[in-house]
Nucleic acid binder design. Structure first.
Length: 549
RNA sequence: UGGGGCGUCGUCAAGCGGUAAGACACAGGUCUUUGGCACCUGCAUUCGGAGGUUCGAAUCCUCCCGCCCCAGCCA
C-alpha cells in the first residue's frame, strides 16, 4: 500500500502530490474498523506530506442523520487526527454532479430507464448469463434530457424512473451492466433539505467527489475492487481533469466481536448492550468510555499492518497495545474490589500513619502521594486463603506478607461467621528492626485503610461474545446466540484509597495488582463508578487455570 | 459452470530470484515492595499442493486445491 503510493510519488504522478480522504456515510457510529481506515488515510497523507480530507458520503438521505455527522467528527478528533478546514460533503457537489449527469446524457452515455426495480433486476442477468438491454436504452438525447430534468423537478414518484449509465449489459462485471446513477427519493436531506428529490448513487458520487477534491489515492475496502472499472469509467468518460487511483485493503475483523453496522445496531436496538457507547462495544465511543486511549488504538492500527488478505486479528493484540500505553502513563492507586477486613492487633486503635506511595514506577516525574494506614484495613478477599495450595504465596494463617508501601504483617488468626465464612483476618505487624530478621515475604498485597477509604461501584467487563468469530453465521446460527452472559459484572461495595476522591469522569488509573480502570460518566458525588478497562496480565490466574485443567 | 481478489508460524505480517524479519499469543527463565513492568531463551529446513525453468525459487511459468467478494433504485 505505502509502496504503491511511494512509487506514484517517485514516478512524479500528480506532481508528487498526495491527497487522501476518509469518506464515512453518516448513518452510524464509527468503530475500530473505521479507525484502521482513518489511520491509513491520515497516516499516508502525513507520511508523504500530503493532505487528508474528511468527507461525508451523504447521498442517501433516508438513512443518514446529523447525529452521526457530529459523532463521527468527535471520534476522528479523539483519535488524534485533524482535517483543518477540509470538511466536505458529497451533498455539496450535487449541482456539479447533476451537470455531469446531463453531460453523460448528451454523450449518449446515460439514459433514463422507466423499468421497475424488479424488471431492472431481471434484465441484469445473472453471474453466468449476460443481461439484456432495457427497452428504454435507446431513448433519444432530447427525451432523456427532458425526462431527467423533470425527474429533478419533482414530476415523478419514487421509483418511476432512474438514470443509468450506458455501458455494457453483457459485461462479466455486473457493476458495468448499466449501473443506476440517480434515483428519485422524495426525502428531506439533512443538509440540502427539500432542494433535491433525486440523489446520486455511490459509484457515481464517489468517483466524482474524489476528482473534484483532487484526491490522488482513493483508499477503500476489498468489496469495492469490482467497482474500480466503474470508478475509472466515470472519470475517464467525463474527461475529468483530476484522476485518482483507487486502492483496496482488507477491512479489519477482531476476534470475539462483531463489526458490521447492522449487527452493532441490532445490539443497541434490542437492548443487548447499554447503547452505542457501551464499554463492551467496539465503537470508538465505546472504547473511549471503556478507557482505551487514542494512542493505544493508533498503535494497534499500526501493528496490524495493511494487506488484502481478510483475516481475524486477535483482540489480545489490541489489549497489548492498550496495556503498553496505560502502563507508561496511568497513575497507580490502591483499591479493593471485594473487601475482607484485616485487623492489626498490635497497632493502636487511634493511630494513623501516612506512607508515601509511588504514583508511577514507570515515570519518576509522576511523583508520590500519601496513603493513610490504620489498625483496620481492607484487603482483597482472594488474597487470603485459609488452606492455601502449594503455589499460593499470599496471606494465610501463620503466613507473612508485605502490605504495599506499609509494613510486613503475619496472620495470627481468623474470625468466621455462622456459615463458616472468613469475615475477619487478624494480623500482627512487624516494626522496623524486627522485620529485617524475617524471611523474605513472597507476596505484596494492596490494601486500603477502612475508615479512610471511599465507596465505589466497579463494572467488570469481559468479551461480549464467547466464540472467536461470532459474525460467522454459517449453519444458520444467529450471532446473538454467542453473546457472553458474563460480559458485565457489577461490583458494589468496593473501597478506594482517599486520593480517588479527586478523580473526574474519564480519568484512568491502575488499581495496583488488578488492572486499569477509568471513572465512568455515570459517577455522581459520593457515588463513584469505575469501569475496568483491562485487567493486568495475571500469572497466578494462569497457574490456577493450568492446575485445574 | 461468469468476473474480481486472496493463500508465508496459533493470529496478524515482512519478503519482489540468492538461501524465511518483526509483533501478538504460547513455553521456560532472570529481576521484583504490583504473581504488573522490564529483560533473556525457545517457537516455520519451510512459504496451499503438484510439476517445470534456474547454479539457486516463498519469489518466474503451468496445472490443481481452498477461502472471500459481486446479480441494491445501500455504501
Amino acid at each position: 500500500m505505502r509502496a504503491a503510493v511511494r512509487d506514484d510519488v517517485a514516478a512524479g504522478k500528480n506532481e508528487g502530490r498526495v491527497c487522501t480522504r476518509f469518506p464515512p456515510e453518516p448513518n452510524g457510529y464509527l468503530h475500530i474498523g473505521h479507525a484502521k481506515a482513518i489511520c491509513l488515510n491520515f497516516g499516508i497523507a502525513a507520511e508523504f506530506s500530503g493532505r487528508c480530507n474528511l468527507r461525508f458520503d451523504d447521498t442517501n438521505p433516508a438513512k443518514e442523520d446529523v447525529e452521526y455527522v457530529e459523532s463521527i467528527q468527535e471520534d476522528v478528533r479523539w483519535l488524534g487526527f485533524d482535517w483543518d478546514d477540509r470538511l466536505y460533503y458529497a451533498s455539496d457537489y450535487f449541482e456539479r454532479m447533476y451537470a455531469c449527469a446531463l453531460e453523460l446524457i448528451r454523450m449518449e452515455k446515460a439514459y433514463v430507464d422507466s423499468l421497475t426495480a424488479e424488471e431492472i433486476r431481471a434484465y441484469r442477468g445473472t453471474l453466468t448469463e449476460p443481461g439484456k438491454a432495457s427497452p428504454y436504452r435507446d431513448r433519444s438525447v432530447e427525451e432523456n434530457l427532458d425526462l431527467f430534468e423533470r425527474m429533478r423537478a419533482g414530476e415523478f414518484d419514487d421509483g418511476a424512473h432512474v438514470l443509468r449509465a450506458r455501458i455494457d449489459m453483457s459485461s462479466p462485471n455486473l457493476n458495468m451492466r448499466d449501473p443506476t446513477i440517480y434515483r428519485i427519493r422524495r426525502v428531506r436531506h439533512h443538509r440540502t433539505g427539500g432542494e433535491w428529490c433525486i440523489y446520486p448513487m455511490y459509484d457515481f458520487a464517489h468517483s466524482l467527489s474524489d476528482s473534484f477534491e483532487g484526491i490522488t489515492h482513493s483508499i477503500c475496502t476489498l468489496e469495492f475492487e469490482d467497482h474500480r472499472p466503474l470508478y475509472d469509467w466515470f472519470q475517464e468518460t467525463l474527461g475529468l481533469p483530476s484522476r485518482s487511483q483507487q486502492i483496496e485493503f482488507a477491512r479489519l475483523n477482531l476476534s470475539y466481536t462483531v463489526m458490521s453496522k447492522r449487527k452493532l445496531l441490532q445490539l443497541v436496538r434490542e437492548g443487548l448492550v447499554g447503547g452505542w457507547d457501551d464499554p463492551r462495544m467496539p465503537t470508538l465511543c465505546g472504547l473511549r468510555r471503556r478507557g482505551y486511549t487514542p494512542a493505544s488504538v493508533r498503535n494497534f492500527c499500526e501493528r496490524i499492518g495493511v494487506g488484502k488478505r481478510d483475516g481475524v486479528v486477535d483482540v489480545a493484540l489490541l489489549e497489548h497495545t492498550l496495556r503498553e500505553d496505560l502502563n507508561a502513563r496511568a497513575p497507580r492507586v490502591m483499591a479493593v474490589l471485594r473487601p475482607l477486613r484485616l485487623i492489626i492487633d498490635n497497632y493502636p486503635a487511634d493511630k494513623v500513619e501516612m506512607f508515601p506511595a509511588v504514583n508511577n514506577p514507570e515515570d519518576p516525574s509522576a511523583g508520590t502521594r500519601e496513603v493513610a494506614f490504620s489498625r483496620e484495613l481492607l484487603i482483597e478477599r482472594e488474597d487470603f486463603m485459609e488452606d492455601p495450595p502449594k503455589k499460593f504465596f499470599r496471606l494465610a494463617p501463620g503466613r507473612t506478607v508485605r502490605l504495599r508501601y506499609a509494613c510486613l504483617v503475619t496472620c495470627t488468626g481468623v474470625v468466621k461467621d455462622e456459615r463458616g465464612e472468613v469475615v475477619e483476618v487478624h494480623c500482627r505487624y512487624h516494626p522496623r528492626g524486627e522485620a529485617e530478621d524475617l524471611p523474605r515475604a513472597r507476596a505484596t498485597l494492596h490494601w486500603v485503610s477502612a475508615p479512610h477509604s471511599l465507596p465505589a461501584e466497579v463494572r467488570l467487563y469481559d468479551r461480549l461474545f464467547l466464540v472467536e468469530n461470532p459474525g460467522d453465521e454459517k449453519e444458520g446460527k444467529d450471532f446473538k446466540t454467542h453473546l457472553n452472559p458474563g460480559s458485565l459484572e457489577i461490583l458494589d461495595g468496593c473501597r478506594l484509597e482517599a486520593s480517588l476522591g479527586a478523580a473526574r469522569p474519564g480519568d484512568g488509573f491502575q488499581f495496583e495488582r488488578l488492572g486499569y480502570f477509568c471513572m465512568d460518566p455515570d459517577s455522581r458525588p459520593g457515588a463513584m463508578v469505575f469501569n475496568r478497562t483491562v485487567a493486568l496480565r495475571d500469572a497466578w490466574a494462569k497457574i490456577v487455570r493450568k492446575t485445574s485443567a
